[in-house]
Simulated scan of single mutants.
Amino acid sequence: MDRFEAMSFFITVVDRGSFSAAARVLSTPLPTVSRKIAELERHLNARLLVRSTRKLTLTEAGEAYLNACRAILDHVGDAERSASGEYLTPRGDMVVTAPTVFGRLHLLPVINDFLRAFPDIHIKLILSDINLHLIDDPVDIALRIGPLPNSSLVATPVGTVCRVLCGSPTYFAGVGKPKSPEDLADHACVSFKGLASGGTWTFASVSGQRPDRQVAIRPRLSVNTAEAAIDAAIAGVGVTHVLSYQVARAVEQGSLTLVLREFEPEPMPVSVVHAGRKMQPIKILRFIEFCVPRLSKALTSDKDRLLFGMAAHAAQI
């Protein structure tokens, strides 16, 4: 019996809550997973899991063994990384994930520069508006937008973004600008299922006061990406509700105009997140050192673009 493999199977079964879920994650037949756990229990001469039709429950011995397995596999992983030089030289593979538009606009250029600076590092970039789990998926570095749950993850803030309402100057010339969120009932809306928008849009009550209010909208057009919603708004279809960095350039260029700024909800933090471990491969540390100041500068530039665009628009009125 490969004890390290059996330990890994045992941890995955507990974390996923069932043998079938663990089998899917491990890409291993269900009977094989069940057999591995049974062999482990026979080897230990102890019952680790109590199986029922609804759930798995750790026995007292199983809980103690689970904690020991995690510690052992962590130590083995650290030893392997140390032996391979990951703690001494920035090299090896990394998996990085970020929201789709943010990753394309801001993170990808940083990664391009990072790869030129560190030729022995290879990066797999996953752009997705669904947050991937740093441990289960697995992912080395994640870019997160919004409040972070309490966890063992380590987060480094890089700035903030906010939700904004915008439309094209041509659209507003024809129908006028909304004066309050409730006025959206008289406007064509472009919605998308994503990070910051959908069938209900969030606004601050009055001048940023709490609590926020939810305004239901009836979309004239519904799409599944922020880029499509922004393109439709630029074309004059209606107003859309997106994140500030997604439209900063369009506002600066005059293609879109921001409205109802006094009703924008609180800005959301943007963070670079990684797993909290006692020892971090140097490639992780170098990537964080490299990307954090550059992403902070990019978000500051976005805010400047929004201010420039609004000022230029006001000067034309």
Rank of each mutant, 00 (worst) to 15 (best):
M1T: 03
R3W: 04
T12Y: 00
V14R: 06
G17P: 08
S18R: 00
F19P: 00
A21S: 03
S27F: 05
T28W: 02
P29R: 08
V33D: 00
K36E: 09
I37M: 01
I37G: 00
E39P: 02
L40T: 07
H43D: 13
L44F: 11
N45E: 10
A46P: 08
L49G: 06
L49Y: 08
V50H: 11
R51M: 01
K55D: 08
K55F: 06
T57I: 15
T57C: 13
T59A: 13
T59P: 09
A61D: 15
G62F: 03
A64D: 10
A71W: 11
L73I: 09
G77D: 10
D78S: 09
E86C: 12
L88G: 13
R91C: 14
G92V: 12
G92P: 14
G92I: 12
G92E: 13
D93N: 15
M94W: 13
V95D: 11
V95S: 11
V96L: 12
P99W: 10
P99I: 04
P99Y: 10
T100G: 01
L105R: 11
H106E: 11
I123W: 00
K124D: 15
L125E: 02
H133N: 11
P138K: 07
L143S: 08
L143G: 07
P147F: 01
S151F: 03
S152P: 04
L153H: 15
A155T: 04
T156F: 14
V158N: 08
G159P: 12
V161P: 10
V161M: 11
V164G: 05
V164L: 07
P169M: 12
Y171I: 10
G174C: 09
G174P: 11
G176W: 07
G176Y: 05
G176S: 07
K177S: 15
K177I: 10
K177A: 14
P178I: 10
D183C: 11
L184K: 08
D186W: 11
V190A: 02
V190C: 04
L195M: 06
A196R: 03
A196I: 04
G198K: 01
G199R: 13
T200R: 10
W201C: 09
A204N: 09
S207M: 11
G208L: 05
D212K: 02
D212W: 06
A216Y: 06
R220P: 06
L221P: 06
S222M: 09
T225R: 02
A228D: 03
I230E: 00
I234A: 00
A235L: 05
A235W: 00
V237T: 09
T240C: 05
H241F: 15
Y245E: 14
A250R: 04
E252P: 05
Q253K: 02
V259W: 00
L260W: 04
L260V: 05
R261L: 09
P265Y: 08
P269N: 07
P269M: 03
V272S: 08
A275N: 05
P281E: 01
I284T: 11
I284L: 13
L285T: 15
R286I: 05
F287V: 04
F287M: 15
F287S: 12
E289S: 09
V292S: 05
L295A: 13
T300K: 15
T300H: 15
S301R: 13
D302N: 14
D304R: 12
G309K: 07
M310F: 01
